[in-house]
Design a protein around this nucleic acid. Structure first.
Lengths: 223, 223
DNA sequence: CAAACCATGTTGACAGCGTGAACTTCGTGT
DNA sequence: ACACGAAGTTCACGCTGTCAACATGGTTTG
């Protein structure tokens, strides 16, 4: 939706203001998070009158949500990039688990390297505005290499573990929430209350954490 | 710090503006999260000129942080309340694990019942302002029944598990991050991307999740 | 080919926000 | 009794989001 497909003839005056504004908004978000997305400043950077934005967004929250959507796509891309690094071992179960860890690593890495975008990605539906425009189905196509969104990548990785026999079918449903919560929580904690670690220490923490989560998810009917 | 001890003679004109402003700010935060806490409105509700606030806070972020501190205290109180419900079984290990789950349940329950306050509690250090005034040591005393903050309650619960022998010493350090991340992530997910469940379904989800985390943390040297 | 059309962008205006500077009020210590 | 200084007020400024009215210029149509 943000990706301007070459088929579309350029809009009348500017070129593609919608896209340009989202891009400017993204830049602002990178620098200062959701609250730094300022309509007038975005318009200024694009070189256009403030009110021109209202031809493309009903109000500021809609711009923010467009930026959030792009941020989610970027997050997905980070996850895919990390997954692409996985080298197959002989063991299918281990490979599936590795891919899950990679998904998680891509998630946390993105949160730490682009905290502003990460914050904006999950800012809609956070009270005080509550736009919550559910783009379901076709609207959801991201711009990642596979066109999948973060949650879809997670489900895919978990399905892989299920197929490889390292995740029990009975645990499959709760596994989504479990894995997502762990990784999301780790991101927020590393960004907020536990910020200030050296990158090296962070990486070690992340790896240890992901390893623990991965092993924790693996079917253990030992109870 | 927010609690006005009765010994202190009341300030000159208003009575205790500092406290009153924090209270008004808290009310605003409850209704609309961090961005809803607006200096002029808080002053209006207290019945005072906007600039009067500047005698007690250097700027808006400082007010927000005071509200955040109170919100953390409220979170701690919720965790303590849930812990107080724990009835001892015979098993010390089980009791310790129960108390950890109670801590988590109190955390998530507070997040869901007071989303605005929960959001504001973790909003400092979130880019774009970045006050990050570290109140260490004595400043940290909350107003909970035990005067402990959320992270201290967690550590305490984990220490209990360690003492009861259900948590291995080698896992003790990572356990903090692990448990906190899981519970915090669950809260955020239930509040954002996975919002809209019925309270009953939420409770079931929470219980299942906490049970899983609890079991996951318990020493399993089966690898 | 010209004229009407409508999407796009501009100008002007308004209320509300955070914040600074100067001024007023009033309890308190000398 | 009086001056001092903390607490609160008033006025002012620049910034924001948003509305209403207007200008512009491809596109479409008679």
């Amino acid at each position: 939706m943000t990706g301007s497909d070459p088929k579309k003839r350029p809009p009348y005056h500017h070129g593609d203001l919608h896209h340009a504004l989202v891009q400017a908004g993204t830049e602002l978000a990178r620098e200062g998070g959701p609250s730094a997305i300022v309509l007038r400043e975005a318009a200024r950077r694009v070189g256009v009158s403030p009110n021109a934005a209202y031809r493309h967004f009903s109000a500021l929250p809609e711009l923010i949500e467009a930026v959030a959507f792009d941020a989610l796509s970027a997050l997905a891309r980070s996850m895919e990039a990390e997954q692409a690094k996985c080298r197959p071992t002989g063991d299918a179960g281990r490979d599936a688990t590795d891919r899950l860890c990679a998904v998680g690593r891509g998630y946390v890495r993105f949160a730490l390297s682009e905290p502003g975008l990460f914050a904006v990605a999950f800012s809609p539906g956070k009270i005080a505005g509550d736009v919550s425009v559910h783009h379901s189905s076709d609207e959801r196509h991201g711009v990642g290499d596979s066109g999948l969104m973060p949650d879809e990548l997670l489900e895919q990785a978990l399905d892989g573990m299920l197929a490889a026999g390292v995740l029990d079918a009975a645990d499959r449903n709760t596994a989504t929430l479990n894995a997502w919560a762990a990784v999301h929580g780790l991101s927020e904690l590393l960004l907020g209350p536990m910020a200030g670690q050296t990158p090296t220490a962070q990486d070690a923490l992340i790896d240890a954490f992901l390893d623990l989560v991965g092993r924790g998810l693996i079917t253990r009917r030992t109870t």
